[in-house]
Simulated scan of single mutants.
Amino acid sequence: MSPRTPAPRSRRERPAKPALTYEGIVHTAVRLMQTEGLQRVTMRRLAQELDTGPASLYVYVANTAELHAAILEKLLGAVDLTQATAAGDWRRRLVAVLDSYTWVLFEQPSLAQSALVARPSGPNYLALVEAILALLHEGGVPDEQAAWAVDVLLLVATATAAEHSARRSADDDAADELSYLTAAIAGVDPVKHPRTSALGTDLVSGAPRERLTWFFHVLINGTLATPRRAGSPDA
C-alpha cells in the first residue's frame, strides 16, 4: 500500500504572517548583516527572510543602497552624543563624538565601506550632525565653515573605519605590507630622499586610535582657521 498523500493545508490554518513595516524590515536587515555580512543583505535575501516577495519591499525601501543607508541609520543610534552637552574643552568633546562614530563603524567592518557612499537621513544621523554643529558653534567656528566641516569630519572618520575594516579582513597581508613599508623607509637613500630618511619610521608610528585623534584635531583647528573663500579663485 502506498503512503497516503497529505491533504493540502488550508491557508486559513496557517499562522498569519506579521504585517510588513519599515521598522521590521530594517530590524531584519540589521540582524542579517550581523549574522551573514552586509554583502548578503540584498532585497531578494531580505524578502526570503521575511517570507514575502521582493516587490513588497520596494514599497518601503527603494533599492539595496537605500536599505544599507537605513541599516547605517539604525546603528548610528549607538553613537555616544552625551559629550555634546557635557562640560569641558569643546575640541576634546567633539573628538569624543567623532571617535564614538568611528568605533561604531569599526564594529561593523562591511558597513564601514558601504558608509562611504550611503547617505542616511534619519533622526540618528541628524542628531549626530546637530551634535557636531553645536560643538563647532560653541568653539566659535563661523557657521559657513561649520557647514562644510561636518562633511569633512565624518568623511575622514568613515574612511578611517573603512580602511581599518579592509585591513582587518586581510590581517596577514596588511601586516606584511606594513613590514615591507617600514623596511623600505628604514633603508631609504638619505641623498635621494633626505626628509624621508630624517623622519624614518616615525612616518608609520603611532597606534590607529592615536593617529585618528590627531587627524581630528588637525581638521578641527583647520576648520577654525580657514575661511571657505580661502580656496576660491577670487581669494
Rank of each mutant, 00 (worst) to 15 (best):
E13G: 05
A235L: 00
Y101L: 02
H137S: 08
A86K: 03
A127N: 07
W103V: 00
L135C: 06
P227V: 07
D80E: 03
E23T: 09
A184C: 05
S121H: 13
L81H: 04
D202H: 13
S179D: 05
T82F: 06
D171M: 12
L181H: 06
G139C: 03
V191A: 13
E49W: 07
A147P: 00
Y60M: 05
L76A: 03
L136F: 10
L212S: 06
A184R: 14
T213P: 00
T160P: 03
A186Y: 09
S56W: 08
R31P: 00
G37P: 12
L76Q: 13
D189K: 12
A230G: 00
M43L: 15
F106K: 06
R209I: 06
R45F: 05
Y125H: 15
T35H: 15
Y58E: 04
A19T: 04
M33K: 12
P54K: 10
H27Q: 13
G139I: 00
V150Y: 13
A134N: 07
S121V: 03
S2Y: 07
T223E: 10
S197Y: 12
E138W: 11
L181N: 04
T160E: 10
A131P: 04
S205W: 06
V188G: 07
L111G: 10
P142F: 08
A186P: 03
P18Q: 08
L72D: 09
D189A: 07
Y58P: 00
V129A: 12
E66L: 10
Y60P: 03
W214L: 10
T201E: 12
T52I: 04
L20G: 01
N63D: 15
M33C: 14
Q39Y: 07
A118Y: 09
V152D: 11
H27L: 11
V79P: 01
A186R: 14
T82Q: 09
R229F: 13
L212T: 03
S2G: 00
F215N: 11
R167M: 14
L94F: 01
A159G: 01
R168G: 02
N221A: 13
L199D: 01
R4F: 06
N63R: 07
V104A: 06
T64L: 03
W103Y: 09
A69G: 14
Q48G: 12
L81G: 01
G187W: 03
E73H: 11
S165W: 01
L98M: 11
R4Q: 08
P233K: 09
S197Q: 02
